[in-house]
């Protein structure tokens, strides 16, 4: 089950459509990192609204993804974590430290706009 990656201006949007196996997740990570380079994207949104479980592997892969993209100079935001999933994650000690999160796609876009515009218009602010 491949995750479709949408290019929207300077951003890439990956909307997960169904439960993912570990291999799918790693494939998503690699594809996003590659596409950020190809399209010189400034921001990435990963929409996990449909995920009903986020275990240690998924959290770690997402965190790695965010850090790898950061090394490419782009910002990532994870959107759509469900209340129950968040509750289970923190019980497991998975807090996605250092990873930006937002409520949904709309909020994620607003976050990226804020982050990336700031970077361009006033580098001293960053």
């Amino acid at each position: 089950m491949q995750v479709p990656i949408l290019k929207q201006g300077a951003y890439l949007i990956a909307s997960i459509q169904s439960a993912l196996s570990d291999a799918d997740l790693m494939q998503l990570r690699d594809a996003l990192v590659a596409k950020v380079s190809t399209f010189r994207s400034r921001g990435v949104i990963v929409d996990v609204t449909v995920l009903d479980v986020m275990d240690s592997f998924a959290s770690r892969t997402l965190r790695d993804l965010v850090h790898m993209i950061q090394l490419r100079g782009a910002t990532t935001v994870i959107v759509g974590i469900q209340p129950e999933v968040a509750f289970a994650m923190v019980q497991l000690g998975l807090t996605l430290e250092g990873v930006a999160t937002a409520l949904d796609l709309e909020e994620g876009l607003a976050y990226l706009d804020l982050k990336t515009i700031k970077k361009v218009s006033n580098p001293r602010d960053g």
Partner: peptide, 17 residues
């Protein structure tokens, strides 16, 4: 409850992993 079902599913995921 939905929350408990999620906790159970997450625990199974970790154990299977």
């Amino acid at each position: 409850s939905n929350t408990d079902a999620t906790l159970i599913a997450t625990a199974i995921s970790e154990l299977a992993r």
